[in-house]
Amino acid sequence: MATATDSDLDRPAAEPSTRTISASRRFKDRASTVLVTLAFLIAVVPLIWVLVTVVARGAPAIVSATWWGNSLSGILPESFGGGVYHAIYGTLIQALIATLIAVPIGIGAAIYLVEYGRGPLARTTSFMVDILAGVPSIVAALFIFAAFISILGAPQSAFMVSLALVLLMLPVVIRNTEEMLRLVPDRLRESAYALGIPKWKTILRIVLPTAFSGTVTGVMLAIARIMGETAPVLVLVGYSRAINYDPFGGNMASLPLLMYSELANPEAAGSYRIWGAALTLIIIIMIFQVGASLLSRYSAIPK
């Protein structure tokens, strides 16, 4: 009798919960782990596959002596000579002009949304930024075509491309800047107000500098995003095999446009140039991407 009572006391009132996990629950848990890990691996496959393809097929072109310093002017379609510096120039200048226009507007709009915006206008603006982020690049290009080329009679040029790129850059710049401005602690703003500094000076001298490197990161990511855009260059500018420094007139090559034109070239040299240009484009985009992430590492806002 007494021994029975002892063993009752020794036994825990409830089984340890870990032991109650039934086989089916454990199976579901394991299965889910396997499935989500598999999903991640599946997602990584195309990235590696694309990168390996581009590097393997593009490497012969970009190590050629003439690749970085020559254009394709006077090079026959079947010849392996020539280079793409005319297209690199086009890609960079179009992105640069777009950046010069988009950054002030984007930062202004972000300041409005964070510091001033209240009520229906701010809500509409915020909503429209989201809509703009979803506007397909071909629609942006078509809009610039309709408004500037069809109605105002402007000629096709690299500048038109830059205008279309502005529309694609703006939402990225606005959202990133907004996020950075919101991270700036309110006590910095309040300290400035306490010193009698007006709000606009506080924003320009205290808030923006604090958020500066984060904002630059966002701009660099936006540039990386637009440099590969092909739809605007297809609609808004003609292709040129030679260098053209003037963004306001004449045909101008860019890396995506060069790739698209060479698609029509059935020669082996065509595919050599396509993959060479693809690798060049990826390298340029990577420079901006890596630059942005290095910068964001040093852009932590003091808490």
């Binding site: 596959w49 590969g228 985009i285 990577m286």
Partner: peptide
Amino acid sequence: IVDLLAAVPSIIYGLW
């Protein structure tokens, strides 16, 4: 890494 998928230009996805 997953975000990098978005950094690849669409013309390269087309070729690939």
